[in-house]
Amino acid sequence: MTIHLNIIGSFLIVLALIHSIFPKYFNWRIELKSLSLINRQMMTVHTFFIALIVFFMGLLCLTSSAEIIETNLGKKLSLGLCIFWVIRLFIQFFVYSSKLWKGKTFETIVHIIFLILWTYISMVFLLIYFE
Rank of each mutant, 00 (worst) to 15 (best):
I69D: 02
V86C: 06
V95M: 04
L79P: 13
A66N: 11
C82E: 04
F84E: 05
S78N: 09
T71E: 10
I68K: 07
S64F: 06
N72A: 13
K76Q: 08
K76N: 07
T105M: 13
S64I: 07
W118Q: 03
T119G: 13
L77Q: 10
V95E: 10
V95Y: 06
F90W: 14
C61I: 02
G103D: 10
E67H: 13
T105W: 09
N72Q: 15
F56D: 06
A66L: 08
M57R: 02
L117H: 13
L59E: 11
W101I: 01
I91N: 08
Y96M: 11
T119N: 05
I109Y: 15
F56T: 00
L115K: 01
L59C: 06
I109R: 14
I91F: 07
G58C: 04
K76H: 05
I113A: 14
K99H: 06
I116G: 07
T108L: 02
G80Y: 03
L89D: 05
L79M: 15
I109H: 15
K99I: 08
L81N: 09
F84D: 01
T63L: 14
K99D: 12
L100C: 00
Y96N: 09
W85T: 12
S98G: 06
V110I: 15
L62P: 05
L81C: 13
G74Q: 04
K76E: 00
K102W: 00
C61F: 08
W85F: 15
G80E: 02
L77D: 08
K76L: 11
S97T: 07
F84N: 02
S97I: 02
L60E: 13
F114S: 13
F106G: 11
S98L: 05
F106R: 15
S64P: 00
F93D: 05
I69N: 10
Y96C: 06
W101L: 05
F106N: 13
T63W: 10
I83F: 01
T63K: 14
E70M: 13
I112M: 02
A66D: 09
K99A: 08
A66K: 08
S98R: 14
S64V: 00
K104W: 00
T63F: 06
H111G: 04
T63A: 09
L115Q: 07
M57D: 03
I116Y: 02
W85D: 00
W101D: 05
L77S: 12
W85E: 02
L59V: 12
V86M: 10
L73T: 10
S78V: 03
A66Q: 12
E70V: 04
L115P: 00
V95N: 06
I116F: 09
L89H: 12
G74T: 03
K104F: 04
I116N: 06
G80R: 05
T108W: 00
V95A: 05
S65H: 13
T108V: 07
F114P: 11
V86T: 14
T63P: 09
F56C: 01
L62A: 01
F56I: 08
G80H: 03
